[in-house]
Design a protein around this nucleic acid. Structure first.
Length: 166
DNA sequence: CCCTGATTCGC
DNA sequence: GCGAATCAGG
């Protein structure tokens, strides 16, 4: 593919419209984002309005909302309320993510809040802003609450064999 | 890891 | 002029 007037024109338009180089490359077809960027520079239209604010405007995943609808309603001070956990059977193939939706906000705690009586079940990715520990009362010296103990001590499921690329 | 634009440099 | 490779960053 060569840079015909049409393609250059489209490139200019899309670039000024704030599309990313990879998006433009996909739109044009037959070129990579590097080619687009290179061309953009050669054309001397490097700077743009303000499209480069957040580098990765990733598509938002719609929230599951299924588990959230099953969350028990707790009135009053949730911090002092007894732990109420839904009586759903933890499905072996279920990932911890949906579980996060049934842990009351008030219970969630950081690693600093953990004591010998708080559930150490991690939810989310450590380091991420939304990461937290379950924080429920543990039974007797166990690292997890009764609910998460059942998950933690289940028979080993078939692990996903993954191989690092490259 | 995903992604972004910027730059370099052999072609 | 072109663009892959690389760099620097979110």
């Amino acid at each position: 593919m060569n840079w015909t007037d049409e393609r250059v024109e489209l490139l200019k338009k899309l670039w000024s419209d704030g599309l990313s180089a990879s998006q433009i490359a996909a739109e044009l077809g037959g070129v990579t984002r590097n080619a687009v960027i290179g061309k953009v520079h050669r054309l001397g239209l490097s700077g743009r309005a303000k499209a480069v604010a957040s580098a990765a405007p990733r598509a938002r995943k719609p929230r599951p909302a299924a588990a959230a609808s099953m969350r028990p309603v707790v009135h009053g001070n949730t911090a002092l309320a007894p732990v109420i956990r839904p009586v759903i059977e933890p499905e072996p193939e279920e990932l911890p993510d949906p579980i996060a939706n049934v842990i009351p906000m008030a219970e969630r705690c950081t690693i600093l809040d953990l004591t010998e009586f708080t559930c150490r079940w991690p939810v989310g990715e450590p380091g991420k802003a939304d990461f937290f520990y379950c924080g429920s009362r543990t039974k007797t010296g166990l690292p997890y609450c009764a609910y998460h103990s059942r998950i933690a001590y289940q028979p080993v499921q078939d692990r996903n064999r993954r191989r690092v690329a490259r």
